[in-house]
C-alpha cells in the first residue's frame, strides 16, 4: 500500500513538473493542480498510513486513531490551493484576453523572451 501511495506521489509530481515547464498557460495550470495533489498527499502521508482508524474519538471502546494533525493541515491546504488555482486561472485568462496569446514567456511588447531555445 505504501508503495502505491509513494509511486502515485512521484508520478503526480513528475507529471506536474513536466507540465509546469510547458510554454502555454493552460498546461502550466494543470501542472500546478497535479503538483498540488502530490503535495497534499505527501503531507497527508507523513502521518503514516492506516486503514479504518479515522481520528473520530470513540466514546465506547479503546481503538487506534490515525494521526489527525497532517489531516488538519492538508484540509486547509486543499482549500487554499483552490484559492491559488483560481487566482492563477484568472491571471491566465486576463493575460490571454488582453494579449490574445497564451504563451507564458511573453515580454511586454508581445515578443517571446529569449530562453535559449525557440518557443
Amino acid at each position: 500500500m505504501e508503495f502505491l501511495v509513494a509511486s502515485a506521489v512521484g508520478l503526480l509530481t513528475a507529471a506536474g513538473v513536466y507540465l509546469i515547464l510547458r510554454k502555454r498557460t493552460f498546461p502550466v495550470i494543470l501542472g500546478l493542480s497535479l503538483v498540488s495533489y502530490a503535495v497534499n498527499v505527501f503531507l497527508f502521508a507523513t502521518g503514516r498510513l492506516m486503514v479504518n482508524a479515522p481520528p473520530i474519538l470513540n466514546k465506547y471502546e479503546e481503538v487506534a486513531y490515525t494521526d489527525p494533525l497532517p489531516q488538519a493541515l492538508v484540509l486547509t491546504a486543499i482549500v487554499i490551493s483552490f484559492g491559488m488555482t483560481a487566482v492563477v486561472v484568472m491571471i491566465a485568462l486576463g493575460a490571454f484576453l488582453s494579449a490574445r496569446d497564451d504563451r507564458i514567456d511573453m515580454l511586454e511588447d508581445g515578443e517571446t523572451a529569449k530562453t535559449g531555445e525557440d518557443a
Partner: peptide, 16 residues
C-alpha cells in the same frame, strides 16, 4: 520531471 518525481516518491516512501 522524472528526477523530481523519483525524489519526492522515494522520500515519502522512506518516510512511510
Amino acid at each position: 520531471a522524472v528526477v523530481a518525481g523519483l525524489g519526492s516518491g522515494g522520500l515519502i516512501y522512506a518516510l512511510m
